[in-house]
């Protein structure tokens, strides 16, 4: 019902834009420019509306407690929030150095003829459906990782499906995104600046570091693009994270859950319980808010460091 109202208001909004464009073009364009704002706030309103019953029932505690017992209508999103933050952070920590190395390799080390081929290959990884990564993570990466850790430590400590497996899988999936942005930025270092760097007697390695400093905005951009992807990634993570809904993970080697994989894994039986749908909408709201906050911080940092 509420969705219909919203859809109707969006249609009215679009119609008014066209009308205004015909009457006063400038104002029509301004209204059109604000369309993304309208869509985002519309989505937020829907999420909030749908999540409201759960927020009313459980209050703020829904976000700060652990627990998942649908038959007793007991829910807590803390493990999912923590899981999302941990997997994204670990994935970023692995992916960004990797992405920088890929960007530098493509721009500095490879012969000119191989650059485009190699760059397209990296881009192709980004274009692969995520479920492929999930399957590989489930049957290859997870067991291999568990074997490796259990052999190294000498006893049974790691399960194949864990936060660590999800983090590493995420890192592999998001590296191409960060690498693409950094690579493009790196290629844009003007020839005159490059000549300046070499003319002050820099070695190739020193020149690379100075150039990376020059393109630090692109590195930031790639980092936050990748972070957004990591936090939102659903299917592949749902396949390898182990689905531990109720307990706070004590280490990276345990199974866990993230907000988006929680939604993906729980929606089939959600309708059977009184409060699960609003709880899942709360999770969705949290994903959206986290995404907005992180991008807001990114834009703020970029704005502050702009030269």
């Amino acid at each position: 019902m509420f969705g219909l109202v919203l859809l109707f208001s969006v249609v009215v909004y679009l119609l008014s834009i066209f009308l205004l464009m015909a009457i006063k073009f400038k104002w029509g364009m301004r209204l059109a420019g604000s369309i993304s704002l309208v869509v985002i706030s519309g989505m937020m309103i829907v999420f909030l509306y749908e999540a409201w019953p759960a927020l009313e029932q459980y209050g703020f505690g829904l976000l700060t407690t652990a627990g998942w017992d649908p038959p007793r209508e007991e829910y807590g999103l803390l493990p999912a929030i923590i899981g999302t933050l941990i997997t994204s952070a670990v994935a970023i920590a692995i992916a960004v150095p990797l992405a920088i190395s890929i960007a530098v390799t493509i721009n500095e080390m490879l012969p000119r003829s191989l650059r485009t081929i190699f760059a397209s290959l990296v881009d192709l990884i980004a274009a692969m459906p995520t479920v492929i990564f999930g399957l590989w993570g489930l049957f290859v990466l997870g067991p291999a990782l568990a074997d490796f850790i259990n052999t190294a430590v000498g006893e049974y400590v790691a399960a194949p499906l864990s936060l660590l497996t999800a983090s590493i899988l995420l890192a592999i999936m998001i590296t191409p995104y960060a690498a693409a942005v950094i690579r493009e930025g790196y290629a844009l270092v003007p020839k005159v600046v490059e000549e300046a760097i070499y003319s002050v007697g820099a070695t190739k390695l020193e020149a690379v570091f100075i150039k990376l400093k020059y393109v630090k905005n692109y590195i930031f951009g790639g980092l936050f693009l990748a972070l957004g992807r990591a936090m939102g990634e659903t299917v592949a993570v749902a396949m390898v994270i182990g689905g531990n809904y109720s307990r706070l993970p004590q280490s990276l080697l345990e199974s866990g859950i993230t907000l988006s994989s929680l939604i993906a894994l729980q929606f089939p039986n959600a309708a059977a319980y009184a409060y699960m749908i609003p709880v899942l909408f709360t999770a969705a709201l949290m994903v959206a808010v986290l995404g907005l906050v992180i991008n807001g911080v990114a834009i703020y940092i970029l704005y502050k460091t702009q030269i």
Partner: peptide, 21 residues
């Protein structure tokens, strides 16, 4: 080459300080 460029400095047509430094 690094020693050569240290001994032989260059000033360019377009002023090219490294702008972010």
């Amino acid at each position: 080459v690094v020693e050569l460029r240290r001994r032989v400095q260059m000033v360019f047509q377009i002023p090219n300080p490294i702008p972010n430094l």
